[in-house]
């Protein structure tokens, strides 16, 4: 089994983001929201992108279907099924957006057209050449699969007649209706309490099993990421600082930020990371996490670390502590190594 998975990895990922940088020009100066971020998604995988407010995760999510405002300056590459979305013609991208890539926006309350019946909003997203009746049947089935109580009644209703959780399901149905191969969900659980959150997590999982789509879940909720995702990318100040399988990441977080984040969870002792995230407006020298890092090395101040692969090739960390090419043992600070050698 193991070798088969490896084979799939070699086969070429569905989506690979390479060195993506997104800069906004504001009256106060440049804001580098995403700074050289890389991420890979395979067919049928659920990948979580976690990070805190201002870490650039939502901007990264919006940049994949090309939904950033025109003022954003984007560089790097977003390869989807072999073609680079950043250099793709606008109408080709638009066509992809309806069929291959679906984006489920953050706010269910304002993301539906208030004057259009639910049925129409879902059937509009079905691109296949079916009759109206067939499309409605598909829409009803979608809602049924998403545990909507009365799917055929819902199709006749307007958004204001639905509760927040129901709207969330409708949005998910719209996302899934086009049978996309990639679904991006931006903060699907924001502001929901535990029981409803549980439902949304189940909902996304069902969308995955029913459509076979790869799903990118953007969230700040570590619980959601943990219970839902196969793999996770951790963002900090515009960079992906660590990525790997969910088990690896939660069992053995390697980056000092990731482990700090884990420790600050209520169930894990709530030990805060000192300090605040750096401003995205300033030019940075060295590692962006250094000022809050307890394991800082000398070179962190002037040199920015790369994303280093650990022995397990899928697990990557942007931290000198795990740079195997330096020939030092993982996790041992430079100073200690230096004294040991002396």
């Amino acid at each position: 089994m193991k070798w088969m998975e490896k084979e799939a990895v070699v086969m070429e990922p569905l989506l690979s983001i390479e060195q993506l940088t997104v800069t906004f020009h504001t009256p106060k100066g440049k804001v580098k929201a995403v700074d050289g971020a890389s991420l890979t998604l395979h067919q049928g995988q659920i990948v979580g992108l976690i990070g805190e407010t201002g870490s650039g995760k939502s901007v990264l999510g919006l940049s994949i279907p090309g939904l950033l405002p025109g003022t954003a300056e984007v560089s790097g590459a977003i390869r989807f099924k072999g073609q680079d979305l950043l250099i793709l013609q606008k109408d080709c991208l638009r066509k992809l957006r309806g069929t291959e890539i679906a984006f489920v926006p953050q706010n269910p309350a304002t993301s539906l057209n208030p004057v259009m019946r639910i049925g129409r909003q879902i059937t509009e997203a079905i691109k296949a050449p079916f009759s109206r009746k067939q499309k409605r049947a598909i829409a009803a089935r979608l809602l049924e699969e998403l545990n909507m109580p009365k799917p055929s009644d819902t199709l006749q209703q307007y958004p204001f007649q639905l509760s927040g959780g129901m709207k969330q399901r409708v949005l998910a149905a719209i996302g899934a209706a086009g049978k996309p191969s990639l679904l991006i969900a931006d903060e699907p659980t924001k502001g929901l309490d535990a029981l409803v959150r549980d439902q949304v997590v189940g909902l996304i999982r069902r969308v995955a099993t029913h459509t076979g789509a790869a799903i990118l879940v953007i969230t700040h909720d570590l619980y959601v990421a943990r219970s839902l995702c196969d793999a996770i990318g951790v963002m900090y100040a515009g960079e992906v600082v660590e990525s790997g399988s969910t088990e690896q990441l939660f069992a053995q977080p390697k980056h000092p930020y990731t482990s700090g984040l884990m420790r600050s969870m209520p169930g894990k002792g709530m030990i805060p990371i000192p300090g605040v995230s750096p401003s995205l407006m300033e030019e940075h020298r060295g590692c962006k996490f250094q000022s809050r890092c307890s394991q800082r090395l000398g070179e962190c101040e002037w040199k920015a670390p790369d994303l280093y692969a650990l022995q397990d090739q899928d697990h990557k960390v942007r931290c000198f502590l795990h740079d195997s090419s330096r020939g030092r043992e993982q996790g041992v600070p430079e100073r200690l190594v230096a004294t040991a050698e002396a």
């Binding site: 309490d193 535990a194 984040l261 709530m270 805060p272």
Partner: peptide, 28 residues
């Protein structure tokens, strides 16, 4: 955010001891 939450909770616990406070803490 989680890391900020941890910082604020830390503050709340410290001042509770320092100023002898009684809390009703609501959360989900």
């Amino acid at each position: 955010d989680v890391s900020v939450q941890a910082q604020v909770i830390d503050v709340l616990k410290t001042i509770q001891k320092q100023f002898d406070l009684t809390y009703l803490f609501i959360s989900h």
